[in-house]
Nucleic acid binder design. Structure first.
Length: 752
DNA sequence: AGCACGCCGACT
DNA sequence: GTCGGCGTGCTC
């Protein structure tokens, strides 16, 4: 009987049906090579094999099967399907993020495809010829070549010794373990004294004994609570612990338990900056058992990791960023999501716009495993789930050891300015504290949120500001090179010598970012060694490590930085942290602004005095009475959570509603307007007041295209599956309308 | 995502 | 008169 296979291709397209050639065995989850279109070869994933003949004329055959085993398990396929349906994207788009690039060869010809295919690295192994295993014969040969070919003689002795020592059954030794070079070994091979074989480079992980940290009484209580709740059937639990309370030690114990019974563990971390430190920490405990997975790995390494895990029989421990939820862990029993509130778990561009934290919860349910969500400042979604009993929970309220929580001082910027106690962007209180800290030999971190407060240039005479010609934003001023850069499209231009509008005066840099802070603080404290950590100063992984290493080794006194400095670094010497402008955190026009501001400030504050007893935090703000400022000063997470939840409930925002944002894009503003009015009207007949908009986004033009938004709010009790169904149907109708066909619609489910 | 097909501006 | 711009539609 002729069989057909529905195949997922790495495109924003539905599955396509290919014919299975007779004699070819294909199963769901397998990777295959197919020809798609007139001249294009792609890697596809077999989704379903069936015998229903499709009703189009040409059904192309599968070219061949790739890899010896399926790349996806049934659970992984179920996860892909969940993501495609929940985030409203194609399986092909999931495929693009889920599989490392090298695993998906493509090309214009079959040769090009083959050339693109992953080939495992091989290594040369050498062993003594069978004949020389006989001791007598071995000595005979040695004597024969000792004089005439001393190098070969040495190599032969070394090989015999190494083979013996490593006790490899065949006496095989990797070439890199010998000092002999290729020429010598070739000669020996020609004389048939040794045998050389090419073998796949082994990337087997180690499996040494774990060295588990001792737990405090508080940690033990939390660990036992989690164990009990997991055992009682809770699939997901929240571990809420203030900075420095030792959540990691609890992770370690849970991870060790799973590994020692042969299960797999996935530890998700927000992004690369944090990964390095945590991987090191885990390697100190679990040795070479740890498998890292992040974007800084080479493509080859990622592919090797995927394929190795795919063959593994359990006991794997992966530490990785969001895309690690797609790794083939066949015995997945535990997923730990560290800093679960972190926005970087959500991918916003391109599709699939998935949240790895939520995917982790789904994946653990699919494999019968457990998910542990850890954070000092959980997202309100998670916190409510734990408070309502849907998730299990455990808490750590005390800092590890004798470390006291930092003392938080709120400094009123307006009052300081009125009294003349403000120099540059610093209030006297902060400057005094910096001076004292430096005198004591302590280190200082200064946090300046660059986002939403970028430096720009303006004319002091007429108020003209430099704007991007393609995007509706002001250009950002970069002092290095005196350039103006658009952060949306990358457009770059020189700072004009005279104001282009009134042609009278110079344009002046306005606003301030980390660069400016660095400059000012160096001027005020000329003795201090100042460094800066932000996207501009971190040009490479190396530059990043160097800045961190210098600060860690106290070769720097003051570190100025953006969000980057807040991410989990553990610097012993930091006793003072300054938040230069809390206002721009509080005043974001976003329903999550207060939650975000609290999380960020707590995280920054947590950098102070992690090991020293008691650090200090100075928050500069013009609204010292703002509820969030008070909650931060009091370290009152629950107060913030309750206040914010009350507001969210009143205005129907998450976690009391699920949001889906729609962004429409077109170069012609009138076409766009007509389109969005049409779509909004249609959606309103379905969703009524649950649809908000059309609304103009903060940046309403990018790369020459105009943007407009719609927002769908579905209350938590309602069926979100039904809502997605209705939405998908309306979007299909809309896309089929010839008047609006050229409008791009971006759907973002659970936007951050 | 590619790529081919198809209808309007500046060139040999 | 063509070469080529990118708008539109299709790929099993």
């Amino acid at each position: 009987m002729q069989l057909y296979a529905d195949i997922v291709l790495p495109l924003a397209q539905p599955v396509y049906t290919f014919a299975v050639p007779g004699g070819t065995d294909v199963a769901a989850g397998q990777a295959v090579a197919v020809q798609f279109g007139a001249r294009k070869f792609y890697t596809g994933i077999v989704w379903r094999v069936h015998d229903r003949r499709p009703d189009f004329k040409t059904v192309k055959p599968i070219q061949r099967v790739l890899y010896d085993a399926p790349l996806l398990s049934a659970q992984q396929m179920a996860l892909w399907e969940w993501i495609a349906s929940y985030y409203m994207c194609s399986l092909g788009e999931v495929m693009r993020v889920a599989l490392p690039a090298l695993m998906k060869p493509s090309g214009d010809t079959e040769e090009e495809f083959s050339g693109d295919e992953f080939r495992p690295r091989t290594e040369c192994y050498v062993s003594l010829a069978a004949e020389l295993r006989d001791e007598g014969r071995f000595h005979e040969v040695c004597e024969k070549i000792e004089r005439r070919a001393p190098k070969q003689y040495e190599a032969l002795l070394e090989l015999a010794a190494a083979g013996d020592e490593t006790r490899i059954a065949t006496g095989e030794v990797a070439r890199r373990l010998l000092r002999a070079d290729y020429a010598v070994l070739h000669a020996l091979e020609r004389k048939k004294y040794i045998v050389c074989t090419q073998r796949e480079r082994s990337v087997e992980r180690g499996g040494s004994a774990f060295r588990l940290p001792e737990l405090t009484a508080h940690q033990l209580t939390a660990l036992n609570a989690l164990r009990e709740q997991f055992a009682a059937g809770k699939t997901t639990a929240l571990l809420q612990g203030v900075t420095g309370s030792g959540k990691t030690e609890i992770y370690i114990h849970l991870i060790a338990e799973v590994l020692s019974r042969g299960g797999d563990v996935l530890l998700l971390v927000p992004e690369i900056a944090l990964t390095a430190q945590l991987i090191e920490r885990m390697e100190r405990i679990f040795g070479s058992r740890v498998t890292p997975y992040h974007s800084k790995l080479t493509n080859r390494r990622r592919t090797e990791t995927y394929l190795r895990l795919n063959r593994s029989d359990g006991g794997e421990f992966v530490v990785g960023v969001r895309s690690s939820v797609f790794l083939p862990l066949k015995h997945l029993q535990l997923i730990v999501v560290d800093e679960e509130h972190d926005a970087s778990y959500k991918q916003t561009e391109p599709a699939p716009r998935y949240n790895a934290r939520d995917c982790a919860v789904v994946m653990a349910r699919l494999t019968g495993g457990r998910t542990l969500l850890g954070s000092a400042t959980p997202s309100l979604e998670t916190w409510l789930n734990a408070a309502s009993g849907k998730y299990g929970r455990a808490e750590l309220t005390e800092r590890y050891g004798d470390a006291r929580p930092p003392e938080i001082l709120v400094s009123d910027t307006l009052r300081a300015a009125r009294r003349g106690e403000r120099k540059a962007h610093f209030n006297k209180l902060l400057l005094d504290r910096i001076g004292e800290t430096l005198d004591r030999g302590g280190q200082v971190m200064l946090f300046q949120n660059r986002r939403g407060f970028s430096p720009y240039v303006a004319c002091s005479e007429c108020g003209w500001t430099a704007r991007c010609p393609h995007c509706n934003v002001t250009l950002t001023y970069h002092k290095g090179g005196r350039k103006l850069v658009c952060h949306y499209c990358g457009h770059t231009e020189d700072v004009p010598a005279k104001c282009p509008s009134c042609k009278v005066t110079d344009v002046l840099p306005m606003g301030f970012g980390t660069e400016k802070v660095e400059e000012e603080i160096s001027r005020i404290f000329p003795e201090a060694r100042v460094a800066r950590l932000d996207r501009d100063s971190v040009t490479s992984e190396k530059a990043f490590s160097a800045i961190i290493a210098d600060f860690e080794a106290r070769r720097t006194d003051i570190l100025v930085g953006t969000q980057m400095i807040t991410k989990g670094f553990d610097f012993a010497g930091v006793s003072l942290v300054g938040i230069l402008n809390a206002d721009n955190l509080l005043n974001n026009p976003d329903f999550r602004a207060a939650e975000r501001a609290f999380q960020l400030m707590m995280q920054v504050a947590g950098r102070a005095g992690r090991r020293d007893d008691g650090g200090e935090v100075v928050i500069q703000t013009s609204e010292p009475g703002h509820p969030v400022i008070r909650q931060v000063a009091a370290g009152d997470f629950e107060g913030m959570a309750r206040a914010q939840l009350a507001e969210r409930k009143a205005f129907f925002y998450p976690p009391y509603a699920r949001l889906t944002s729609l962004t429409l894009r077109h170069r012609d503003p009138s076409v766009l307007r007509n389109g969005v009015m049409d779509l909004a009207a249609r959606l309103r007949t379905r969703f009524g007041r649950r649809l908000l908009g059309p609304m103009t986004p903060p940046v309403d033009r990018i790369r020459g295209e105009y943007l407009v938004g719609l927002l769908l709010k579905i209350e938590s009790g309602a069926s979100s599956a039904r809502a997605r169904e209705l939405l998908a149907a309306e979007l299909k109708t809309f896309a089929g309308n010839p008047a609006f066909k050229s409008i791009t619609v971006v759907v973002n489910v659970d936007p951050q």
